[in-house]
Design a binder for these strands. Structure first.
Lengths: 133, 133
DNA sequence: CGGGATCCCCCTTGATACTG
DNA sequence: CAGTATCAAGGGGGATCCCG
């Protein structure tokens, strides 16, 4: 295991090597989902265990039914989430993270970690930037 | 240092604890930038060293002048990038990552790493999903 | 309960032209 | 070289209604 500086250089190196900026890179494709308004929120909400549709809706109140459905479908399409229908009445549908989906928690968590730690600096920077402008 | 499973649980735990989903959380705020079409691309492009405006434009050809300007301003506003004007003629402006900006490379790199490793699975999942539909 | 279908707004992005 | 200003288009996403 290398230190943080070494890691950074490793990533920079790899990026430079892979940086074929002509055409849509696969990385962009994944990043679009990360940055998408709801995907990661749902992934983290599902991280603590499987949940049903309306259960998710309750835990993430400000998402519309449409976007909840759509985002879940996209996550399922990418194999991050699996969908299980129980043929009861009324019907019950359970969503849960796949292994692949679960594997996203650590790298994504690192980013959250960074975000939380960096928030104060970012906030201060914004204030002083806006003050000048 | 814990193993991957322990780490995941740590992040899940923290997320649950912090999940005040009422109102815009700071995490969403940061995620918007990550997912934004150009921010991370520019950060990684600047990772290997400072660059001037048109130099950046050459290395990321498919960005428009407008978005390049705008994205750089946002990054500067957040304190991830610093802007240095050299009063020569013709004028020269150099952009470089701040320490804060540099600190993003590692967590972001982890995500890229995940993306690259998971691409095959995701691609396969998509194919089989679309086949059914 | 768990969605699908539709309408519509607005915000981001791109293209183009101009400037110090 | 390093931007700014303006206009037009596209699609992401919300609101609403409907269905099995």
């Amino acid at each position: 295991m290398q230190n943080a500086t070494g890691l950074a250089e490793t990533y920079i190196e790899r990026w430079s090597a892979a940086a074929d900026l002509s055409g849509p890179c696969p990385v962009r494709d994944v990043l679009d989902k990360i940055g998408d308004k709801w995907s990661m929120l749902l992934v983290m909400t599902l991280a603590c265990g499987p949940k049903r549709f309306n259960e998710l809706h309750r835990e993430v109140p400000d998402i519309s039914q449409k976007m909840l459905t759509q985002t879940l479908r996209d996550l399922q399409r990418d194999g991050l989430v699996s969908r299980h229908v129980f043929d009861t009445k009324p019907p019950s549908v359970e969503y849960r993270l796949t292994d692949l989906g679960h594997s996203l928690i650590v790298p994504f968590g690192q980013l959250i970690e960074w975000a939380n730690q960096s928030m104060p600096s970012i906030a201060k920077s914004r204030v002083s930037f806006d003050k000048v402008a």
